[in-house]
Design a protein around this nucleic acid. Structure first.
Lengths: 209, 209, 209, 209
DNA sequence: GATGAATGAGGATTCATTCAT
DNA sequence: AATGAATGAATCCTCATTCAT
């Protein structure tokens, strides 16, 4: 699968991603995409072979980018103290998911019959688990953390809570002061991050001074 | 909106639920449903008015049942000790979500343009929050719990982690011994429950003896 | 074809006539009729064999009634002077058409593939022609009328102008003071009758004193 | 609304007009049209948006053409004597209606819910009224005509009689020698024109020398 | 005699894709 | 390389009718 695209292809993918995020894969027609992207209907088949293949490319591309980005991020925190690292990871993941929520929104739902594509996402998850594991181990060794929960459980907790928050806006609203859309998203993210940090530190047995 | 259906209507809903869970609402045609349910294509419109209305009925029905069931459940644990109650709630929610995972799979994704339907789900969430709040308060008063986290955060954690687990089977597989499908689901649920119980008790400051 | 119906059948026909007049034959579904008539959908097929046969019965019935009614009317004027008779015929025909305009609206349009039914209407037209012919002849003989136009031409003129008036409300409105629907119809009918009377007498060479 | 069409669009409209004239708008399916026009079913939606919009285009187009044509015609007779002008107008209108009878057949009946489209036809009628009014006035001034009937009454008479003749073939047949279809139409038109000319001159008080 | 459930045929439209240019 | 026209398959839904009761 390709990971580099011409400018026109990227343009299509960008528009497609936005629309699919809003209306779902099946809810988004190639006409919608082509009209919004101001290109010919035929271009999607022409460039990607089919609508589904375009989707696969989009998916692959986005996850690839996410992995690369995470790798870069991981590098920047590699010398910190474990509690700082953990705090940063939580911040990073929530921020990214909130930013690309539209993407993660369809990732797990709309890609049916394309099981093999999920391998990409899996690789990303593995990377996260590795890093978290590393941090936990370091924290335990240094005595910063009292407990050593399974890293995948920690990740499930972080990702699950974040995606749930994103997808259940009307529930979250009940406990987040709502002014306007943008402000709300910020507040929701902040509340979530506080909660996740508290929870994660709790299961790590880390006592905030 | 109706909550009782004839046998034939229930049959359609059951088949529809299964298919929609697998292939999504838009990915499931009325022909798919009717052919699997061995009924005439026209029956869906005939019974429910339209495909979308059928979906709304299905949704409403399932949430309604869930709420009723939860209310019954809540009654059964009302006299227990807080830590037992919390354990039971976690068990209850994970079990239910695993059981009706196909339903919860599309609930938050596929129902576009039917924002009003989400009110039902919201009411269910509120019920959960109330109950959790009650338990936390009791636990704190009795000195069983040291901390009083926000009940909605606890719920987000439980539901988010559970749905993530259900939706990311291929990730969970990595850390759960896989024999066969059924066995796997049991193990995954067990692992999740352990993790959630540990996490929840950690943020409640409850020390397992 | 039947001309007598049970009360229930008549009820169906009455409702059907009204709906068909408003929305056309094809635009009116048996469901529309049955729901408005508060009867079962199956009744139409049950009583009349099919929707189309119901229509044929309705048509036949209405024309039959019209003929009988016209015959009665003709009797009442048979001793009058020709100019009075002619005036009365014009009045009669316009009044009837305005009254049953909905019927005449579909008569000539919606009954496709049922050419044979038109025989009924034809018979009614013949009856009119006969009567008009009689009047003209008498008028000419008595010297009341100077000319003897073809009776069918006179009829075409009367019926054509009337139906055109009924069917082109928005044109007629331009030259008829419009207050409310009912008032308008009365005014339109009056204007039409004046015009027709004037025209008919003109071609008969009858000079109004 | 468009008034110019590509060759293919015109082809569709032509076929559609013919079929709709025969079987009505609702009685004609897009499948009928596409199969007769030897095009794909999807083309109607593709070109016109929907069946109904196609109809609106057809309607608009036909009336537009009629108006333009009438304007041209009016120009050609503008210098004639009033009695000649009136004769020509009658001839023109009857000829046009006979030619496009299929069109005028559905115009007033089948276009429900599209009241605004009738404005087009109304404009055409107005044009006719204007011209007729002009002729009458000139005739009265020059002493050619003795009476000044309302121009709209004259038009109603002409159009009504013509449409009635077209729509009631089996009645007209009774007084028109029938050989073959084509011949019959010619004869019917001729008989109608004679009658209309006589009638119109009668109400104008014009004495044919 | 009358009905409500159920049917299959057919309705218009939208879809992703292809093809000639 | 890129496009606009055109296509056939599939969509959901509505129709008049039938059938078991």
């Amino acid at each position: 699968m390709k990971t580099t695209f011409t400018e026109k292809q990227m343009h299509i993918l960008t528009v497609a991603e936005e629309l699919i995020a809003k209306k779902g894969f099946e809810g988004t027609s190639v006409r919608d995409i082509s009209s919004k992207a101001k290109i010919n209907v035929a271009m999607i088949s022409y460039y990607f072979g089919s609508k589904e293949k375009m989707m696969a490319n989009l998916y692959h591309f986005r996850v690839q980018k996410t992995r690369e980005h995470f790798a870069e991020f991981a590098e920047t925190i590699k010398d910190g103290r474990p509690e700082m690292q953990m705090r940063e990871i939580i911040k990073y993941l929530t921020t990214q998911l909130f930013k690309y929520n539209y993407f993660h929104g369809f990732v797990t739902q709309e890609l049916r019959h394309t099981e093999h594509l999920k391998q990409d996402l899996l690789d990303f998850y593995k990377l996260c688990v590795e890093k978290i594991d590393e941090i936990i181990k370091k924290g335990v060794v240094t005595g910063t953390f009292s407990f050593a929960p399974k890293p995948e459980d920690v990740l499930v907790n972080i990702l699950g809570s974040t995606l749930f928050t994103i997808r259940n806006k009307n529930f979250i609203e009940l406990s987040v002061p709502f002014k306007n859309e943008e402000q709300y998203m910020k507040e929701a993210e902040k509340k979530l991050r506080n909660s996740l940090t508290f929870t994660t530190f709790a299961i790590l047995g880390y006592v905030i001074d």
